[in-house]
């Protein structure tokens, strides 16, 4: 791809003899915000560390802005990394933390003052410039860590689980902050996360990974609405996935005949896509949870467990009730992989 700004080509990553990522190809465009998404152990963090230069690839190539950086030491790459633990320097003030990189470059004092002040103000920390990290809240430390990287005007900014250590309110604040910074600076960002909601909300494109292999790469819309694999569907909230064999659906407990002839290998339904209260089959309610707009049910059926949800305004069922349900073809999603 000609418009690739960061390009991973046939990248293979290993710790000693254990291969974490067998062969990876990703092209990231300039100014793009891309999410590496997957469960722990899927190789997303390892991939990020390879881009940063904190680990040397086993084989393959990494280019940034057309330059091969595969063997370039981490301190020469001009890449920023916001660590999950923030990795701030405890012995330095917020200002000195942010100024660290510029001081190494021996920039003139006036320039350091100006750039650090600018970025501390941008992340709303100007009033805490003299504080040590230990005297700051988690959210403030995170923003300082972000500012410390941004002061260096990196070619690429990597973020390791940027929202995972924050509570719900701060998470929304930080998310907005990241999007704003990205819009204002046009900086290319790659962030690693295990949280699909985070990836959907933030990313321009998502790389869904499993066992070091890309399951699917696409826009949040594509991954959410058109998963290509069972893993992807499961990751994005299709909680009822059944194998299709002829005219049967095969579940964990048994099979059930369906009225439609599916050609895909799997069919998947989100909880909301299961019809509860009407349908050709019956199940026993084994769990109910009220979730505001929705009421969530766990049904024990001949297929196995089914997770369903109805609008809270619809009639409620109790545990032990026998309820008719259906898996309509129209609300199901066929998965070929």
């Amino acid at each position: 791809m000609s418009d690739a700004y960061v390009s991973l080509q046939n990248l293979s990553l290993a710790y000693g003899s254990s291969i974490v990522v067998p062969e990876l190809n990703i092209d990231i465009r300039k100014g793009e915000l891309i999410a590496l998404l997957g469960p722990s152990g899927c190789g997303k963090t390892t991939t990020m560390r390879a881009i940063a230069g904190l680990m040397t690839p086993h084989s393959g190539k990494i280019t940034i802005d057309g330059v091969d950086v595969t063997r370039m030491p981490a301190n020469k790459r001009g890449i920023g990394l916001v660590f999950q633990s923030y990795a701030l320097f405890p012995h330095l003030t917020a200002f000195e933390n942010a100024a660290f990189g510029l001081r190494l470059q021996k920039r003139p004092a006036a320039e350091i003052e100006e750039r650090v002040t600018h970025w501390l103000a941008t992340v709303d920390l100007a009033h805490l410039a003299d504080r040590k990290p230990a005297e700051m809240s988690g959210g403030q430390q995170q923003r300082l860590s972000l500012a410390r990287s941004l002061v260096m005007e990196p070619k690429v900014l990597l973020l390791d689980e940027p929202l995972s250590n924050l509570d719900a309110r701060l998470r929304l604040e930080m998310r907005t902050e990241l999007q704003r910074v990205q819009r204002d600076t046009g900086i290319t960002m790659v962030f690693v996360t295990h949280d699909q909601a985070e990836a959907l909300a933030l990313a321009d494109r998502i790389v869904l990974m499993k066992d070091g292999v890309i399951e699917q790469l696409g826009t949040p819309d594509e991954l959410y609405n058109a998963p290509r694999t069972v893993f992807g569907a499961d990751f994005f909230g299709f909680e009822n996935i059944f194998e299709v064999a002829g005219r049967d659906l095969i579940g964990a407990k048994g099979k059930m005949p369906v009225a439609f002839g599916a050609t895909a290998r799997h069919m998947a339904w989100r909880p909301g896509a299961v019809s509860v209260g009407s349908g050709p089959w019956e199940g026993v309610v084994t769990g109910v949870a009220f979730a505001g707009e929705k009421r969530e049910y766990v049904l024990d059926t001949d297929l196995g467990q089914i997770k369903a949800a109805t609008d809270a305004s619809e009639p409620a069922y109790q545990i032990g009730d026998v309820v008719p349900f259906g898996l309509p073809e129209a609300t199901g999603f066929p998965i070929s992989g």
Binding site: A52, G53, A74, F83, L88, F89, P90, F100, G101, R148
Partner: peptide, 24 residues
């Protein structure tokens, strides 16, 4: 990871030791 942060900001490994590890 503090040392890795220092390296990504431009330090050598030795620099990270003297500037970040030793003071702490």
């Amino acid at each position: 990871d503090m040392e890795e942060a220092a390296v990504l900001l431009g330090c050598t490994r030795l620099g990270a030791f003297t500037r970040v590890v030793l003071p702490n």
